[in-house]
Amino acid sequence: MSTIPLSDHPLHRSLDTAIPAIQAAARLSRLVLQQNDKGTISKEDHSPVTVADFAIQALLTASIHAIFPSDKFVGEESANALRTNPRLIERVWGLLQVVGKDGGNIVVPESQEHMCELIDWCGKGAPDDMDRTWILDPIDGTKTFVRGEMYAINMALLENGVPVLSVVALPLLSIDAQTPVNNDTRDPKGEDGGCILFAINGHGTFVRPLSNKNIQPRRIPRHCDAITSLSDLKSVTCVSDLDSGIDSIHTMVAQQLGIQNFPGCDLLGWVPRWAALALGLGNTTVWVYKDRGRKAKIWDHAGAVLLFEETGGKVTDVDGRELDWAAGRKLSGNYGFVAAPKAVHGNVLQVVWEVLRREGKGGFLGEIDQKVDV
């Protein structure tokens, strides 16, 4: 692992741009949390989106573009719904004006049309293996956010198709959180609480308070390096709150691995799950999609996976393949996830295969062309 001081690292300027931007995004999200009406609408895929999603995506894009005008962007939302909803666009614009008064390094769009244009840079963007590309998820866990529960704001920087920087804000998670954390976990410090995790490829994962206080970030130990036995595995997953995975398979894998207190940390959002793994609140997650045609969305994982990897974790898909971050807006070349400490990742993967084979769920390794029987 590199011992270069953060202030001397080539990505220092990118990190210094991302942190105040994500702090402002967190403040904006809290403004929306205080409102009964969060401006929630349903997208074409029936997933929810709020005024916070639109405003944060515009805020992060504007702030980064002001410093790095050649960088590209990929994000979850497009501005289609805003352009046809005058009331919604006014609410989003109003939130940006409030946060923009904070000044500092924060940049807000110049007009409502500029705001929509910035959002569409993300909503129509796709990563490749050539350019610096920022991957943004303005609210990861929108369903829980609407309920006032755990959510995250995700920023990741890819260079040559590889995540090199991750910055994640968790406004409801304490910097000193203890396992297990769940969707309804709340930092007792309230608006003075929350944390930011960030990781630099080859340089480690760090955690710091979400607030603007000038506190040195704390390097998270490479806790996964100490795990050499399956008996030390602790789970992070989502149970019964998502219909994309096979809960019974996840439970059987945990039982065969001997994981105690399954499910452990039970979190709907993927970014909070990766953060919990990085913080050592767990060290293992397995996700088998019901359908091999189901593909993960890049903004739910890019960068956030790096948080765990920089603490000694290894992440592949269910087939044992490395994750292809340059495949597009979805991880089209990968199926599901298997994450565990490096020393035992192969053992965990083998158990996953054994359970899938025993339960008649084909479509992995030599059976890739078979249809998954669900």
Rank of each mutant, 00 (worst) to 15 (best):
Leu267Ala: 02
Arg357Gly: 11
Val98Gln: 12
Asn347Gln: 15
Trp93Leu: 02
Leu31Ile: 13
Phe198Ile: 08
Leu279Tyr: 05
Ile22Gln: 02
Asp45Lys: 12
Arg358Asp: 10
Trp274His: 07
Pro69Gly: 03
Trp287His: 14
Phe54Leu: 08
Arg91Lys: 15
Leu136Glu: 00
Phe337His: 04
Leu257Ile: 13
Leu96Thr: 07
Asp247Lys: 05
Asp300Cys: 04
Asp45Arg: 09
Glu77Leu: 12
Glu191Asp: 10
Leu173His: 04
Val271His: 07
Arg208Asn: 05
Asp247Arg: 04
Gly202Phe: 10
Asp131Lys: 04
Asp45Trp: 12
Glu77Met: 12
Asp53Leu: 05
Arg321Pro: 01
Phe54His: 03
Ile106Trp: 02
Leu331Gly: 00
Ala169Glu: 03
Thr144Trp: 07
Val372Ile: 14
Gly100Tyr: 00
Lys361Val: 14
Ala275Gly: 03
Pro69Gln: 06
Ile64Phe: 15
Ile215Pro: 06
Thr285Gln: 08
Gly363Phe: 06
Leu331Arg: 01
Ile56Asp: 00
Cys238His: 06
His301Ser: 14
Arg132Leu: 09
Val167Asn: 00
Met252Ile: 12
Asn334Ala: 04
Pro263Gln: 09
Met252Arg: 14
Lys72Thr: 13
Arg218Ser: 12
Val98Ser: 07
Val352Phe: 06
Trp134Ser: 00
Leu331Lys: 00
Gly293Phe: 09
Leu323Val: 15
Ser229Val: 10
Glu354Asp: 14
Gly204Glu: 02
Gly320Phe: 07
Met115Tyr: 03
Ile4Gly: 05
Met1Ile: 13
Gln23Glu: 12
Val49Thr: 13
Met155Phe: 10
Trp299Met: 04
Ser42Lys: 15
Leu279Trp: 06
Arg273Glu: 09
Pro69Thr: 10
Leu88Thr: 06
Asp243Asn: 13
Ser240Trp: 07
Gly148Gln: 11
Lys189Trp: 03
Gln23Ser: 05
His345Arg: 10
Ile200Asn: 02
Phe145Met: 03
Val107Gly: 00
Thr185Ile: 10
Phe308Ser: 00
Trp270Thr: 12
Leu277Gln: 02
Phe308Leu: 04
Leu281Cys: 03
Ile246Arg: 12
Asp192Leu: 14
Leu6Pro: 06
Gln112Leu: 09
Gly148Leu: 10
His250Ala: 08
His250Cys: 08
Arg294Trp: 11
Gln256Val: 11
Cys265Gln: 05
Val348Thr: 09
Leu15Thr: 04
Gly100Leu: 08
Lys361Cys: 07
Ile67Arg: 12
Val108Trp: 01
Asp241Lys: 15
Gly39Leu: 13
Ser166Thr: 10
Gln255Ala: 12
Asn183Ile: 14
Asp120Leu: 11
Gly75Arg: 02
Asp187Ala: 05
Leu136Ala: 02
Val315Asp: 02
Leu307Trp: 04
Val338Trp: 03
Leu6Ala: 04
Arg329Glu: 02
Leu306Gly: 00
Cys116Glu: 02
Arg218Ala: 09
Lys213Ser: 14
Gly39Cys: 10
Asn334Trp: 13
Gly148His: 09
Leu95Cys: 04
Pro5Met: 12
Gly346Glu: 15
Ser14Tyr: 11
Leu158Met: 12
Val99Trp: 00
Asn261Cys: 09
Ala343Met: 09
Ile4His: 05
Ile89Gly: 01
His250Tyr: 08
Cys116Arg: 03
Pro127Phe: 06
Val372Lys: 11
Lys213Gly: 08
Val239Gln: 09
Glu110Phe: 11
Glu322Ser: 15
